[in-house]
Design a protein around this nucleic acid. Structure first.
Length: 207
DNA sequence: GTATGGATGTTCT
DNA sequence: GAACATCCATACT
């Protein structure tokens, strides 16, 4: 695999609005720098947790766990879900807002053997299909919480090699109950690397 | 292929 | 005590 020379995202170009940021991040690249090498992947699925959203972790104010969500947009918010899986989020909007974008799935690009070792499985499609799997593949945990993702470092965001992510679908979010009807999940329609069982294009035909 | 239940940290009622 | 932005092993159709 060629060593990709990605350009980090510029904070000023990140959309202010959380849903727009979730849409914008599709096709961008998550880069993880580890001692044994670089692992990276294209973002194929995101979810927005917006202002006034009862499903958002920042909805009820700041706690020791979620304080990174209140940073200027483009910072990492990492938390442990169900005591088992880490989740990678990108903070959004103006500082103090407490909103963000959950990165739900990647198409592996670089360092695939590193991801296989971290996950303990072989199958390419399952390496980063789902937020917990993605974090495990890239060895993301709370030590990366609060990191500036717009600067090169142990974890950062870059532009893809082309800006053609493909047709983007929109649907309800997965695994939540509050504010569950809002179409705040974005994904690459034809990609096999998006997580199920969603993938149901609410805007499309399904009957 | 689908369905179900267990593991388990943090927050909230 | 219950809920939760999940994953995996196991059982079953």
């Amino acid at each position: 695999m060629r060593s990709a020379t990605y350009r980090p995202l510029d904070r000023p170009e990140l959309p202010d609005d959380t849903a727009a940021l979730a849409r914008y991040l599709i096709g961008k690249v998550v880069v993880r720098e580890l001692p044994e090498g670089v692992a990276s992947g294209r973002i194929v699925e995101t979810e927005a947790y917006v202002v006034g959203d009862a499903a958002g972790h920042g909805y009820r104010g700041m706690t020791p766990r979620n304080r990174s969500l209140f940073l200027e947009r483009g910072h990492a918010y990492v938390y442990l879900a169900y005591g088992i899986s880490y989740m990678l989020n990108v903070s959004s909007e103006t500082p103090g807002t407490g909103t963000g974008v959950l990165i739900r799935a990647l198409e592996p690009v670089e360092g695939i053997e590193i991801m296989r070792a971290n996950r303990g499985i072989e199958r390419l499609r399952d390496l980063a299909r789902g937020p917990g799997r993605l974090a495990q593949a890239l060895r993301i945990d709370r030590s990366l919480d609060g990191l500036d993702l717009c600067r090169k470092g142990p974890l950062w965001l870059g532009h893809g090699e082309d800006d053609e992510p493909g047709e983007i679908g929109q649907s309800t979010r997965i695994g939540i109950s509050r504010d569950a009807d809002r179409l705040l999940r974005f994904y690459v329609r034809q990609s096999p690397f998006v997580s199920g069982p969603g993938s149901q294009p609410v805007s499309g035909q399904q009957h």
